[in-house]
């Protein structure tokens, strides 16, 4: 047999590795935070990944699904996920408790292009569960702060109770080396002291943008992309410096099952991180 490209993984790439849930707590009504550690100590310490990559998580009796890794590779040892309860696999994950086991395999997909981002100003725009993958790259930038220019974060949620990592972001606001802006569509608590309005209402607050030296990192529900991309284009940020992640059905994560295909592209190995320029050329998405 004549393989043509570099073979990344010599062992069985479909085989999950047992991992222990070491911490689990609710972030919102239907999103829970999971900190997990591979049972195999060597693997736990040697597991390398990039910000923006995802892993396949399996639960005995329920199946397997892809989830973004929310922790940063700059802090090895534990993997973190935030998972929304929506169906068979995620319901089963929610039934698990600390010290229970899941299966994890990965990491898969392209991470964010950190080398391209280095030296530039970074503008993060996230909504809803979009904070799950973006937290990884944000923490990565903060752990390596000197290598990035100005960092601005726009984070939106429907209501204060639905803001993922709300306390973590409120805490970030205290830092002087980044500008963090939070917004909720609607405040139903009467205690929200940050902005109210959709995430795009935060754009006027952002300090001067030097478009050609800015990388925008966007993740959120489909409806958010449309409005946010409009704003970014208005700011003249080049299309290939607007980074986003796409979600598709995924059964393998390694370019074999076909489910994540968009035109010629396999979201799992060619993505999930794409530039807006890439996305513009996907016929199925236009």
């Amino acid at each position: 047999m004549n393989g043509t490209e570099k073979i990344i993984n010599q062992v069985n790439p479909y085989k999950p590795e047992p991992a222990r849930i070491v911490r689990a707590y609710d972030l919102t009504d239907d999103v829970r935070f999971f900190q997990v550690r591979f049972a195999d100590m060597d693997l736990a310490l040697s597991f390398k990944y990039e910000a923006g990559q995802f892993a396949m998580i399996s639960v005995l009796g329920a199946g397997e699904a892809p989830f973004s890794i929310s922790s940063t590779p700059s802090r090895p040892g534990l993997l973190e996920f935030c998972i929304r309860k929506t169906g068979v696999v995620t319901d089963a994950i929610f039934r698990l408790k600390e010290n229970d086991f899941i299966g994890v395999r990965g990491p898969y997909g392209t991470g964010f292009p950190i080398e391209m981002m280095k030296g530039r100003d970074i503008l993060f725009v996230m909504g809803g569960l979009g904070a799950a993958p973006l937290r990884s790259v944000l923490l990565y930038c903060l752990d390596d702060r000197d290598h990035f220019g100005r960092i601005s974060v726009l984070h939106g949620a429907k209501r204060p109770a639905e803001m993922i990592f709300r306390d973590e972001f409120l805490h970030l606001k205290k830092r002087s080396d980044l500008d963090c802006y939070l917004s909720v569509d609607k405040d139903d608590t009467g205690e929200w002291t940050e902005n109210t309005g959709v995430v795009t209402t935060l754009f006027p607050k952002v300090k001067t943008i030097v478009p050609e030296n800015t990388a925008a990192v966007v993740c959120g529900p489909p409806i958010m992309y449309k409005f946010v991309i409009n704003e970014l284009i208005k700011l003249n940020i080049p299309k290939d410096q607007i980074l986003m992640t796409l979600e598709r059905r995924m059964k393998c994560g390694v370019g074999k099952c076909g489910h994540c295909a968009i035109d010629y592209i396999y979201t799992c190995i060619d993505g999930p991180v794409f530039t807006y320029w890439d996305v513009l050329h996907m016929r199925e998405l236009i």
Binding site: M1, T4, G255, K256
Partner: peptide, 15 residues
Amino acid sequence: MDQFYTQTYNDPYYI
């Protein structure tokens, strides 16, 4: 199939 199942990642079952 030989090419497909050995590119980027191996498919051990096929191989």
